[in-house]
Design a protein around this nucleic acid. Structure first.
Length: 416
RNA sequence: GUGAGUGUAGCUCAACGGUAGAGUAUCGGUCUGUGGAACCGAAUGUUGCGGGUUCAAAUCCCGUCACUCACCCCA
């Protein structure tokens, strides 16, 4: 019989790692509420069709990385590889555009992609993200980037770079793609096999290739920013101007393209040099036609998603917040019942209490008290029982006093 | 999906082809009303798994699985 271990690309979280997660999650809720974001939670799994239509059936994510299976009624179900299509679906399904205003949501939760794990990449990984609906103006895109930048600063992540670009819209992108394809076709033989394949399937992604040879060649290719229609051009200008007003440092990079099909106009990415190969901390952009794509009205939208594991890699150790624990020690087995009664009394008062039911002697109990980091050890011995009192030892100062049982509440009010 | 590196006690790691060990953690004792320290002692392993070479394999070879990193993709 072989040992059962966690599936590849998943992991268990506990102290001290979990402290970082708790810290980060608390900060996310706190920080984004300043921008009037509300939390939304959508199902972990959806009908596969949602992601095929939403993300794009030609994307790598949909083609190779989805956890898709048939349920017992033979429905095709997929564990969400990202959250944006689900949020859009939820908004349409629940008519949230008319129910809640402003329509700004954040989410935190697990996502699933069948990828080969490596640093900063897991099969079950976690993202938080925000989505803004019904706001088309360029300033909103800038505000979104400002919030992302501000959040990373808030958790003391500083060694980062912000890249932005515009990928145009259904008006101008179709004019650009043939030009790009034509240019790539001319130098086809010099491109790597992957890029050659991308020429017909997804030419924009040639810009993503990290091979120097391909980078040099594609640097000569036409740039999307030179092909933007007037509206997209103006939009991108305002985004950049507003980012400056927000005092957000950014690099305009015409090579920046994203792996999901739904993006229009503004796209952006924040990367960190500390991460190695998986350097994207966060990425997003505008997706003005996803609603329509999924069968709804035409609602402008913009958002981003951030990799929690990747952010955690940047976080320093979080010191454990100390609660004043009370450890109850008893002199011998006969006094155990008294000790249990005392523990119940204290716990009903909402105090953190610990005791050892199998203790053989006081010494062992003090050792345990020390191990759990107790602030005080309450001692019940024959003497204490006889004169209706409790001995209280301050574990830090080693000071010990005896208090009357009737004075216990007063002592607790003062010290706990 | 492709490639490289690593798999030995709970953890961190040793061991020339020749009896599997140390530190640490755990448990017990010195110490039955007082913790952190010290000292003494105990327990813990199919050396990831399977095969091969050899008188002899943790060690060499092959396969497999797992982990890590990189490609790819992305957060």
């Amino acid at each position: 019989m072989t040992k059962i271990i966690a599936p590849k690309g998943t992991k268990d979280l506990f102290k001290p790692e979990i402290l970082k997660w708790q810290f980060l999650e608390a900060r996310i809720r706190q920080f984004f509420s300043r921008f009037l974001f509300q939390e939304i939670r959508t199902p972990i799994f959806e009908h596969s069709e949602l992601f095929q239509k939403g993300i794009g059936s030609e994307t790598e994510v949909v083609q190779k990385e989805m956890y898709t299976f048939r349920d017992k009624a033979n429905r095709s179900i997929t564990l969400r590889p990202e959250n944006t299509p689900s949020v859009v679906r939820a908004i349409m399904e629940n008519n949230l555009l008319t129910e809640i205003f402003p329509v700004r949501f954040f989410y935190i939760g697990p996502m699933f992609r069948y990828d080969k794990p490596q640093k900063g990449r897991f099969r079950q990984f976690h993202q938080f993200g925000v989505e803004i609906f019904g706001e088309a103006s360029a300033e909103v895109d800038a505000e979104l980037i400002f919030s992302a930048f501000g959040f990373l600063n808030e958790v003391n992540i500083e060694d980062i770079e912000i890249y932005i670009n515009s990928v145009g819209c259904p008006q101008c992108r179709p004019r650009f793609l043939p030009e790009l394809q034509a240019a790539a076709q001319k130098q086809q033989n010099e491109l790597c096999p992957d890029c050659q394949r991308k020429i017909s399937t997804n030419p924009l992604r040639i810009f993503d290739c990290k091979k120097q040879q391909c980078i040099d060649i594609s640097n000569q290719f036409p740039k999307i920013t030179d092909y933007l229609c007037q509206d997209c051009h103006d939009h991108f200008q305002v985004v950049q101007r507003t980012l400056s007003t927000f005092e957000v440092p950014f690099i305009s990079n015409p090579r920046l393209v994203r792996g999901l099909d739904y993006y229009t106009r503004t796209v952006f990415e924040i990367t960190s040099g500390q991460l190695g190969a998986q350097d994207a901390l966060l990425g997003g952009g505008r997706y003005d036609h996803l609603f329509q794509e999924l069968g709804g009205k035409d609602i402008p939208a913009t958002g981003f998603a951030a990799g929690i594991e990747r952010i955690i890699l940047h976080l320093d150790e979080i010191p454990e917040t100390k609660t004043s624990i009370i450890f109850i020690a008893y002199q011998n087995a006969a006094l155990k019942t008294e000790a249990i009664k005392l523990s119940a009394y204290l716990r009903k008062k909402g105090l953190p209490v610990f005791m050892d039911y199998n203790a053989r002697n006081i010494k062992k109990q003090f050792k345990k008290s020390d191990r759990v980091g107790a602030a005080f050890t309450f001692i019940l011995g024959e003497d204490e029982i006889a004169n209706q009192s409790i001995s209280v030892k301050n574990m830090k100062t080693t000071e010990q006093i005896q208090i009357k049982r009737e004075d216990l509440d007063q002592w607790l009010r003062k010290h706990m």
